[in-house]
């Protein structure tokens, strides 16, 4: 049960948040021009890292904002949180 520092609200209990999977997967601007394989890469392929992972989180029972979070999945240490559209920090 983490304590997550929502970039809009501050520190809150994990129970208020939901995780939206891997971050920085951009929806292709022109999906119709992609091959099946390229589209499948966007649609299905997700990393599952033991270690530092960039994730999307939503403050679902709070401000309802989406933001990004850098978490080490091996020890749940949260290295950074940052707003959507901001550059990912170098970890």
């Amino acid at each position: 049960m983490f304590i997550i520092n929502c970039p809009y609200c501050g520190e809150r209990d994990q129970i208020e948040f939901s995780c939206g999977g891997e971050a920085h997967i951009v929806r292709p601007k022109q999906p119709t021009e992609l091959s099946d394989d390229e589209w499948a890469e966007y649609l299905f392929m997700r990393k599952n890292i033991k270690g530092v992972q960039f994730e999307r989180w939503n403050h679902a029972h709070g401000c309802r904002k989406w933001f990004n979070m850098v978490r080490d999945t091996s020890n749940d240490k949260i290295h950074a949180v940052y707003k959507m559209g901001e550059k990912p920090p170098v970890i």
């Binding site: 939206g20 929806r27 999307r56 939503n58 679902a60 309802r64 904002k65 989406w66 959507m84």
Partner: peptide, 13 residues
């Protein structure tokens, strides 16, 4: 609602 908010905030801000 959650799905629409997700797209609005992250793909089409």
């Amino acid at each position: 609602l959650s799905k629409l908010e997700d797209y609005l905030q992250t793909e089409w801000p």
